[in-house]
């Protein structure tokens, strides 16, 4: 596949006797937006966990930029260029919004204990660069003015965007969004969709798990459908909507 960024081959994960993800094969091209849908418990989040190294697949492999990443630690996967958000917001609640985003820079910076204690010129320079970068990302998601607020005091929709900003600060080439519009009203959803457009125009590929069909159909180049851990359908948003297997999975016909 030309410009192939991520290739999942036959990925399988068991939880005890349950096959949570079962022989899933899936590709993502450079800069592509892939919508990942399916009923609750279909294995979408588990697939994210397989890609990001939270779990190692029991069978199959995940390759990213032609390198095998399954079996790597999550922080190594981030370093390789994959960042994610979580279904239930997972921010550093007692840190400021700006600091949360600065954490995303950790993987792209290197100052260690000695530099921190001696406050070397290199340390100060890097610290400034971390802050500058974090500010620019915060500005991108439209939350620069909230930078010094503790994230636990921010509104729900803003917290979602801080999470996206933290992921973007790691300079990913692939961003995994796990239900970014969950619990949002239509206005907030539209804002997140707009943000996803901005991210896409930066050339960052996205896999998005989403339940709001209008969001998925609008933003995705391609859609893949999971049901009971298996990929049952893949194609353009239009094709997927018409597929009888998808309709059956959702309506339980």
């Amino acid at each position: 596949m030309p410009g192939e960024l991520l290739a999942i081959r036959d990925a399988t994960k068991y939880f005890g006797g349950l096959e949570a993800v079962s022989g899933v094969t899936l590709q993502v091209a450079d800069g592509e937006v892939l919508g990942l849908i399916g009923p609750n418990g279909a294995g979408k989040s588990t697939l994210f966990n397989l890609i990001t190294g939270v779990y190692a697949p029991d069978r199959g492999e995940v390759r990213f930029k032609n390198r095998k990443i399954s079996g790597c630690k999550p922080h190594q996967v981030v370093a390789a260029g994959i960042a994610r958000t979580f279904q239930n917001i997972r921010l550093f609640a007692n840190m400021t919004a700006l600091e949360n985003v600065m954490i995303g820079r950790h993987v792209r910076t290197r100052s260690e204990l000695a530099e921190a204690l001696l406050r070397t010129p290199g340390f100060k320079q890097e610290e400034k660069a971390i802050q500058d970068y974090a500010r620019s990302v915060l500005d991108l998601v439209g939350l620069l003015k909230a930078g010094n607020d503790l994230v636990k005091n921010l509104a729900y929709g803003d917290q979602r965007r801080i999470e996206i900003a933290r992921a973007l600060a790691t300079e990913p080439s692939l961003l995994l969004l796990d239900e970014p519009t969950a619990g949002m009203n239509p206005t907030e959803s539209a804002e997140v969709m707009g943000l996803m457009g901005v991210i896409k125009r930066k050339g960052i590929a996205i896999i998005v798990i989403e339940h709001q069909m209008d969001v998925v159909m609008n933003i995705s180049d391609r859609v893949a459908v999971l049901d009971y851990g298996k990929k049952i359908c893949e194609g353009s948003p239009f094709e997927v909507q018409k597929d009888p297997k998808v309709i059956e999975a959702y309506l339980g016909a």
């Binding site: 990001t52 939270v54 630690k73 999550p74 922080h75 981030v78 370093a79 960042a83 994610r84 979580f86 997972r90 921010l91 550093f92 609640a93 007692n94 840190m95 600091e99 600065m102 954490i103 995303g104 950790h106 993987v107 792209r108 933290r166 992921a167 790691t170």
Partner: peptide, 17 residues
């Protein structure tokens, strides 16, 4: 900052690199 991030949410810290 990494210390504090781990205190706040270890998994999120690991998955933030």
């Amino acid at each position: 900052r990494a210390f504090v991030a781990i205190r706040e949410d270890e998994l999120a810290a690991e998955l933030s690199g």
